[in-house]
Design a protein around this nucleic acid. Structure first.
Lengths: 334, 334
DNA sequence: GAACTGATTTTCATCGATTCACGATTCACG
DNA sequence: CGTGAATCGTGAATCGATGAAAATCAGTTC
């Protein structure tokens, strides 16, 4: 395949000039520029990205590390990140960790070897050794719900509290008092934050009510289990908030299978607002965690620290808000 | 950051020896090897992937081009490709075309510049110029449902006929005779193939029945529209096969909204078997297009032509099969 | 002790760009 | 018409690895 040298020879100029024409990195006279471009065309020349990155030290690649692309939360996030990256001329290397810390660190290592300009770490399978390794290499990093920002490192901080408070106020407004929560796996930071937000808000808004919490797994089955626990309870809650939509859907399915009607018998609120939340019957009332915004800010933060490495990383608050649909209704007898 | 030269100096050997130790590409005495590894550790050395690819001409990267990661068909495909690639030490650059041919060709160009070892083109926004460009560059390519295999190019050919025939036989077995089809956008190759398979199979199995075909868009709305068309029909079909699950779900939703019961009043069969097909009520009977298999074979074909570029690409048939669930039942009065 | 062997290791050209320091032209202006 | 500055190009070092060919060395053999 033809290299920059071939093009230079064909155009009768030096490789430096060809480089400048291609990258617009210095003024080149109209005449020479035209000759070079013609030669590029004639040779079918494609610059070699590896040679380019090696020489310039820059790579125009971002790493995107997520836990599981098959989890309906992620595709839209990936899409928005990919979109923003494409717009700015960056390619995205996708790393799917399958929730495996070992695999995560192998991936991060590879991304470093690749000299990616930045990494979006949208997962929590991270140990601190890995993080300090990235710090040492001065890779731009953006985390999701993890630690404080630092040099080269920004953090997206989802405002779980706001959405959950909105959800609870919504239910209280509908006359609900006995409100339960289906939490996620304890080792996931985002699950812990959601649970904490629920606990705190109920304590504040309904001080006489005890916290009613079911332990879940962020999957359909966790919701089903919670439904069975609900059915077995002495004093059944009249409303349930699930820490994510998958569990909310599992819950709804199992309750209906038991002959109950949603929202007549129980009101259900989910979290995330995955695509299918609005497609099932009844359409799920849920707290939206805006993925496009997440993605846009993630790329924005990366590009900012790539452009100004000396500046401190930032903390970006991502709002969440309630989307009221058909799975919530006034409490019976209220 | 430390380079191979620093490591060599630290270990008191040449760079070649370091390289050989790291890549296991030639015998190195135990003593020297240990010294090198210690130096690698001490320097915190990470090989530079660009320098490596430039020197060796190999890149250990695959490009994955898909239409829309937010379309529920793709995440599982991406996941299986990513899995297989990871296992073989390859990274995946994700290219989401948003069904835009212009964007597709820019992406493919970038992948070529990156000197990716292979590209999986799981989309149909491709013009022949692009394909011949890839052929000229001798990139390994695997297509989905596109053209014949050739040098460096393999093709995954989904056996739509088998699954659709199975679906129709299933319905006929349940006593259905008036069976309709909701097709996809005419410009998509895979949509055309599904429609053709339906038409052909009905003509063969139910020669007296006219083909009943609704035009759809592969999205929920297309299914809803088909439902309205169904409601308006003189002689309503007793069963509907949709070209994909999204339309099947839209159809079911709209029919139920109109007061009909599925499968009592109409049997519905989808296609693809996306995750939500088995999560909705009634659980959707559908033709499964096995994504894991697709992904595994895609990577397999790429690695094979990377390893043996002189061999002709292959054509791989991907089976499809019916998964009978709750959305189909005996025809009324049958 | 010279010549030969086999086992290891080193030297150095190379991959294909970028970019710096410098050289050649051109131009404005007093 | 000479001069300094601005403009436009070039040559060559450089990035960090790989890998073919040459070099080194210890141990045999004659």
């Amino acid at each position: 395949m033809s290299s920059i040298r071939d093009v230079a020879r064909a155009a009768g100029v030096s490789t430096a000039t060809v480089s400048h024409v291609i990258n617009n990195t210095r003024f080149v006279s109209e005449e020479v520029r035209a000759r070079v471009l013609a030669a590029v065309e004639r040779c079918g020349y494609y610059p070699n990205a590896h040679a380019r990155s090696l020489a310039s030290g820059r790579s125009h690649t971002l790493g995107l590390v997520i836990s599981d692309i098959a989890n309906p939360f992620f595709p839209e996030l990936v899409k928005s990140i990919e979109d923003a990256a494409f717009e700015h001329g960056y390619d995205v290397v996708l790393s799917n960790t399958n929730y495996d810390p070992e695999r995560t660190s192998r991936y991060v290592r590879r991304l470093i070897e690749r000299k990616v300009a930045g990494v979006a770490l949208m997962t929590s399978e991270l140990d601190s050794a890995l993080i300090s390794e990235m710090a040492r290499r001065e890779v731009a990093v953006v985390f999701l719900d993890l630690g404080r920002p630092g040099p080269h490192m920004s953090n997206l901080c989802v405002d779980y509290e706001a959405g959950i408070e909105e959800a609870i106020r919504h239910l209280v407004g509908l006359g609900h008092r006995r409100i339960a929560f289906v939490g996620g796996p304890a080792h996931l930071r985002s699950a812990a934050k959601r649970s904490e937000a629920f606990r705190e808000t109920v304590a504040r808004l309904l001080p006489r009510e005890p916290p009613r919490i079911f332990r879940g797994d962020f999957k359909l089955e966790g919701g089903r289990e919670a439904a069975r626990a609900w059915l077995a309870a002495d004093e059944r809650p009249t409303a349930v908030v699930a820490a994510n939509d998958m569990m909310a859907l599992g819950l709804v399915g199992e309750l209906r299978a038991a002959g109950l009607e949603i929202p007549r018998d129980v009101s259900v609120v989910g979290f995330d607002d995955i695509a299918f939340a609005s497609l099932v019957e009844p359409r799920l009332t849920t707290v939206c965690l805006p993925r496009q915004e997440l993605g846009r800010h993630a790329v924005g933060a990366l590009l900012a620290t790539i452009a100004h490495p000396e500046q401190q990383g930032v903390e970006i608050k991502i709002p969440t808000y309630l989307v009221a649909r058909g799975s919530t209704a006034p409490a019976r007898g209220a």
